[in-house]
Design a protein around this nucleic acid. Sequence first.
DNA 1: TGAGCACTGGACCGTGGCGTCCAGTCCCGC
DNA 2: GCGGGACTGGACGCCACGGTCCAGTGCTCA
Lengths: 196, 196
Amino acid sequence: MRMTARGAATRLRLVSGAALLMREQGAAETNLDQVLRATATSKSQLFHYFPDGRAGLLVAVSAYEAEQVMEAQRPYVDDLSTPESWRAWRRAVLRHYAELGERCPLGVLTSELGSSSPEARQVVSDLYDRWEGALIAGVQALIVHGTARSDLPVRDTARSILTAVQGGVVMLRATGRLSYLETTLDTTLEPLLGTP
Amino acid sequence: MRMTARGAATRLRLVSGAALLMREQGAAETNLDQVLRATATSKSQLFHYFPDGRAGLLVAVSAYEAEQVMEAQRPYVDDLSTPESWRAWRRAVLRHYAELGERCPLGVLTSELGSSSPEARQVVSDLYDRWEGALIAGVQALIVHGTARSDLPVRDTARSILTAVQGGVVMLRATGRLSYLETTLDTTLEPLLGTP
DNA sequence: TGAGCACTGGACCGTGGCGTCCAGTCCCGC
DNA sequence: GCGGGACTGGACGCCACGGTCCAGTGCTCA
């Protein structure tokens, strides 16, 4: 689809506006009219940019939110080669979820958007792959660096960390408490960084 | 509401039937007509037992599924006083999720039902409290038993285990792989049971 | 500058799905 | 065995919400 700068801006306004609404009140509770009102657009514009309607919008929101999840961990997640960068990463993650609380992109991605369509599911699963890849590289680097024991199972360790974040976010959404994420992250990172 | 045996059976048929449908296809994708067809009941029966309609049914399903989550861990979760019972508990949990896969009560509880209404949210949060309580008692017992170090933070350890299960289930639902749960559970239980 | 297509506005439509109503049946307690 | 309330059946109403249509407007590029 050819698009002018103005068109691209409208499209982005729709996606980011929809994403925000869905974070705050859930995807299922967000209807198209709300999105249109919040973004000052009309129905025909929405269907112009998303011929598949709501379904297409959900996929775009998924991709947008997946990007936000990675963005929140930058720049650290891109280079987890030292204990310092791991610690900085941990701080960044905790800060992000402390700020957003239950209204985080990851929460709505895993619990709602991911199961809305095969395409959205693919987006979520791609996110996990990228994320796991970054963590694997980081664990590997710490072994080379000598901080972590060389017999550490690299992939399993990375997956544990990913799982810890997921679990922490679920509990955050359910209880409003950040402590689950903090504690579990500490436990899981211990073999990598030692007791802080 | 007064109820005869027959009425109670009808009510239970509605709740358990709805729960099954919602596990398999999600709560949002399950409408009342499907529930009625699956349970061989009629709309007036449903509204007879659930005057609040769909909302009330969702709360009842939440309570039912919360009970299923605990039931799946029985009898071990009620007495985690020895390393053997902890190991048996771990096996029971893994077997349960290996069997049900993505169609587990916990998954639909956390991702859909829990946010459907304040009442349902309360049910979910009560479940977590009960669960955490059982784990705390178990960790405490292992310390008394001498298996676990006495300086282990009891509540934090219990919460880590709970978070590990949650994270593992999220990843199971997203990827279909049980390994996340297995690995993370091992890591988290290590300070309690040592390397198996 | 003007032709054509991207872009916009908003009225309109169909329907899936929740909830209501009422008439009839069955069972429990006296 | 009989009165009343628990229980059942299914037709009906209503409306929120996703999606369509078409008539304009204004940018872009030759």
